[in-house]
């Protein structure tokens, strides 16, 4: 076999939000590099589709609403031991501050912030991580490095998650590592139809690389953090944004 420091051969990896976008692309790349995947999401049809796109054998999926404490308990009880965990499920709803309401804020915080915290807590408590395991959280540049009109709820949810990542890195060392990827705008269904094509074209001009990211751009950064190539990297937040934060 050719030299490949990024191989994931022999690793079992859990990916949340695996039914589409960045989660699907990450699962596909991990499988290509030899990992065995456990996919989870609330969207079963999307999980089926991701599963059928994976190379290799031994992959499985589990449907779960990560905002339910019971669902988290069941999911964790059924999981094999893990060498990798990609906490990636997330939602947004662009809303100006004066329109923030309890329903939207609680939904965004529960999926983007509380679910990753509770899931990590349970994985640790139930000793699901093999020594040398790598945890990767999909955070964002939004909230952590940039602000945008309408992004307060999402930004607050991701800012809190970023702080959590650093704390897990500290408590987890030297046994496990914990990092984040922080993407700029990526072509997925996340933002739904909140922005028109015209707005997007204009916004893309604010990216030095003159395009939005593709899910695979982020997936390959996650692969690096999951692989032993990054074994001395922990508590890091890896910006993948086509240069957006250079301004």
């Amino acid at each position: 076999m050719a030299y490949n420091p990024f191989t994931l051969e022999g690793k079992t990896i859990l990916v949340t939000g695996a039914a589409g976008g960045i989660g699907r692309a990450t699962s596909i790349e991990c499988a290509k590099l030899g990992a065995k995947l456990v996919l989870t999401d609330i969207n079963e049809a999307g999980l089926q589709e991701t599963l059928s796109s994976l190379e290799g054998v031994g992959h499985e999926f589990k449907v779960a609403d990560l905002t339910s404490q019971d669902a988290l308990d069941t999911l964790v009880a059924e999981l094999p031991l893990l060498d990798g965990f990609v906490s990636n499920a997330g939602v947004t709803k662009p809303t100006p501050v004066k329109f923030i309401n309890n329903t939207d804020l609680e939904r965004i915080m529960s999926i983007n912030t509380f679910a990753p915290i509770y899931l990590t807590q349970r994985l640790l408590k139930k000793k699901k991580f093999n020594s040398g395991a790598s945890l990767v959280f999909t955070v964002s540049i939004g909230g952590v490095y940039t602000t945008a009109p309408g992004n307060a709820m999402y930004g607050a949810s991701k800012g809190a998650l970023q702080v959590f990542v650093r704390n897990v890195a500290l408590e987890g060392a030297p046994r496990i590592r914990c990092n984040s990827v922080n993407p700029g705008m990526v072509n997925t269904n996340l933002a739904g139809r909140s922005y028109s094509d015209e707005d997007k074209a204009k916004d893309m001009e604010t990216y030095p690389m003159k395009r939005y990211g593709e899910p695979r751009d982020v997936a390959l950064a996650i692969v690096y953090l999951l692989s032993d190539a990054s074994s001395w990297v922990t508590g890091h937040s890896l910006i993948i944004d086509g240069g957006k934060t250079l301004y």
């Binding site: 662009p94 809303t95 100006p96 004066k98 329109f99 009109p149 309408g150 909140s194 707005d199």
Partner: peptide
Amino acid sequence: SLIALSVIA
């Protein structure tokens, strides 16, 4: 763009 988001909300 902020007022556009406000109108949507």
